[in-house]
Simulated assay, not measured.
Amino acid sequence: MDGTTRVGVTRAAGRVRCDLRPGALSARVLSTGPGVARVALVATRALLLGGDHVRVEVHVGEGVELELVEVSGTVAYTGRGRAASWTVDVVVGDGGLLVWDALPFVVAEGADVTRSTDVRLGAGAVALLRETLVLGRTGETGGRLRSSTRAEHVSGRQVTGVIHDPDTATPLHRVSGSPTTGVIPDPDPLRELFVEDLDLGAHRALPGILGTARVVDSVLLLGTRPPAARPDDAVATVRHPLRLDLDGPGAVARHLGASTHDAGLDAVVATWAAAARAARAAVVPDPGNDPDQSIMLQTTGA
């Protein structure tokens, strides 16, 4: 069964507008504030069954903060020969912020699941995403999971010189004052920030892949660089989640383990979320100056 859930949050004339369209998940407003909305995602039926194709579309408007809260985790059940998919498409407008601390996604024995997450960030936009993949319920080895993540952002980069046609070598842009030098806009401002493909199938237990681990817990921050861990930070000194800084603004923290209880990434989420909100505050005007802070909800469906 297919089901597309849409969550949109925008600001217009000083108002926060929520556009919520239910699908396999239903979005419910938990709270709102000046330029901020907190929305829960609630399953409308049993998920995830063989043959299900769930899609979640999230749009965060310019200068808005959206926090998504999951009421319960998701279990992909035995598909009896039928595959299932879980697709997330995220767009965060200029100066926007998305915080999504997702609950565990469990792939039970016999399930065959494809997950994909695509994120596009505008100028000054930030996204913090938690993804906890669990292979099997207690006593199970788990089914097959293929998971891909793509993130792009507006680079804001400028190119020095003239862009030439690759076939004819003729200039495509000419800069005033010099035929060969100068500053021109980037012709392709969207840049890949993070790309990952995980194929956790029959060979995932091999050395160098997962080994004995059955939990892949990740926190991905896009659009800003998180602060360095302090020496007295329990996350840094005790549980040692792996942190990798991206080539662009962002980082990923990851833990591979046997259970969801020993990852130590809850503290990472809290610290990085605070850094993300601070980064947003630096580029977005104080919403308290808006003359009208009323909330407008537009909901379609149950």
Rank of each mutant, 00 (worst) to 15 (best):
M1Y: 09
D2A: 13
G3K: 08
G8S: 14
V9G: 10
T10V: 14
A12T: 07
G14A: 05
R15E: 09
V16R: 11
R17G: 03
R21M: 09
P22A: 13
G23Q: 05
V29T: 13
L30F: 03
G33W: 08
G33K: 03
A37V: 07
A37M: 07
V39H: 04
R45Y: 01
L47Y: 06
L49I: 01
L49N: 01
G51I: 02
H53I: 01
H53V: 06
V58W: 03
H59W: 06
G61H: 10
V64S: 02
L68D: 10
V69A: 10
R80L: 13
G81I: 05
A83F: 00
T87Q: 15
T87D: 14
V88L: 13
G93M: 07
D94H: 15
D94N: 14
L103G: 03
L103S: 07
V106A: 10
E109K: 05
S116R: 15
S116I: 00
T117C: 10
V119W: 08
A123V: 06
L129Q: 05
L133C: 11
V134M: 07
R137W: 03
T138H: 13
G139E: 05
T141N: 12
T141E: 15
G142V: 05
G143Y: 11
L145R: 06
A151V: 03
G161R: 08
G161C: 02
A169F: 08
R174D: 04
S178Q: 06
P179D: 13
T180A: 14
T181L: 11
G182D: 10
V183G: 01
D186N: 11
D186M: 07
P187W: 00
P189T: 02
D197R: 13
L198M: 14
A202H: 05
H203A: 15
A205P: 00
A205I: 01
I209H: 13
G223L: 02
T224L: 03
P227E: 12
A229P: 02
D233S: 10
P241I: 01
L244V: 14
L244P: 00
D245G: 12
P249V: 00
P249H: 13
A251K: 04
H255S: 15
A258M: 07
S259F: 05
H261I: 02
D262A: 14
D262L: 05
D262H: 10
A263D: 13
G264W: 03
A267C: 02
V269S: 04
T271P: 00
A278T: 10
R280P: 03
A282V: 04
V283H: 08
V284R: 11
G288V: 01
N289Q: 14
P291H: 11
Q298I: 01
G301L: 04
A302Q: 10
A302T: 08
